[in-house]
């Protein structure tokens, strides 16, 4: 017999999935708006962020209610507490997508500084990581979460490469194009931060599924 509590947990999971879908879509749209210099799309991302903020509060309230009223234990407790953390990470991810969209306004209507090459690559890693950690949460797949974490060094490498090139090739050389270079620099930084939040989610998923704390202990990732 299914418990009422199971129904409530399903509701919470559904809300978290909606949050994940919206955040993932925000990243996708922010990259598209950057590629196409699409200010309308960038504006949409900024407007839609309100819905994500609302949903974050709703999930937080649902989770607190479940903790107070159901006093969950073990796997239920781990699901709700990690759900709360994932919720906050997803909201930050959506905020970073908004930050990218804001930079699109700075870049649009100006000649392109250089063809975008490495930023789309970094964006692809970020999207892949976010998608994988969401899948790992949905399917309670600790191994997929671990694989997502292992992508993070690649994101760091790409971000450093992009930033070095922008600093040495543009910002230090030409003050006229420096604002555009700084915008691209910030976008790379935001994308890299998205990857960091995805890593946090992956660590939470590993705790939820395997009861192992790998946060701040990268060596523990090798244990299983």
């Amino acid at each position: 017999m299914e418990r009422h509590f199971d129904e409530e947990l399903k509701e919470l999971k559904k809300a978290l999935l909606k949050m994940a879908t919206l955040s993932e879509a925000a990243i996708y749209k922010s990259i598209e708006s950057l590629k196409n210099q699409d200010k309308k799309l960038a504006k949409d991302i900024i407007n839609e962020d309100r819905n994500i903020d609302e949903l974050e509060l709703e999930i937080e309230e649902k989770s607190i209610n479940l903790l107070a009223l159901r006093q969950p234990m073990a796997r239920d407790l781990r699901f709700i507490t990690t759900g709360m953390k994932i919720n906050a990470e997803l909201e930050r991810i959506a905020d970073l997508a908004v930050n990218i969209a804001q930079q699109v306004f700075e870049l649009a209507d100006k000649p392109q500084l250089k063809p975008l090459k490495d930023i789309p690559k970094l964006a692809a890693v970020a999207r892949r990581m976010v998608k994988d950690v969401i899948d790992s949460f949905v399917n309670r797949d600790g191994n997929l979460a671990k694989r997502a974490i292992l992508l993070d060094p690649e994101a760091d490498k790409l971000k450093n490469l992009i930033c070095d090139e922008l600093i040495n090739g543009y910002i230090m050389k030409d003050c006229i194009t420096a604002p555009q270079a700084i915008s691209l620099f910030l976008i790379a930084r935001h994308l890299e931060r998205i990857c960091d939040h995805a890593t946090n989610i992956a660590e939470d998923v590993i705790y939820m599924v395997q009861s192992r704390v790998v946060k701040h202990h990268p060596e523990k990732l090798q244990d299983k």
Binding site: R3, P72, M73, A74
Partner: peptide
């Protein structure tokens, strides 16, 4: 025991399953 029990039977019992 109450956050991450080792045995499934324990987990099923304390989560009311």
């Amino acid at each position: 025991i109450f956050t991450a029990p080792s045995k499934k039977t324990t987990e099923d019992y304390i989560t009311g399953r």
